[in-house]
Amino acid sequence: MINIRRDVCGYCGACVSVCPQGSLELIDAYLTVDTETCKDKCKICSTVCPLGAIEWVEK
């Protein structure tokens, strides 16, 4: 599953725009993931992040 490192996130929304499932949402400065719809393994969000705030970790 993806893990959002809130101390690293710059809440820019780059990941939100490329998420093919629409699972990410930026609520003000707080990035959230809908774990129901996240495909978990595409890693597009962790790839695109300019700061490295999204990790992919084994469940």
Binding site: G13, V16, S17, G22, L51
Partner: peptide, 25 residues
């Protein structure tokens, strides 16, 4: 803006292909 969530919720696919999204700092 770039997140473009509202149109997506209304049924329009606004997803940007990864290679066409410039990630910036």
């Amino acid at each position: 803006g770039v997140e473009s969530k509202f149109a997506k919720w209304a049924g329009i696919d606004t997803t940007v292909p990864l290679w066409e999204l410039e990630t910036c700092a």
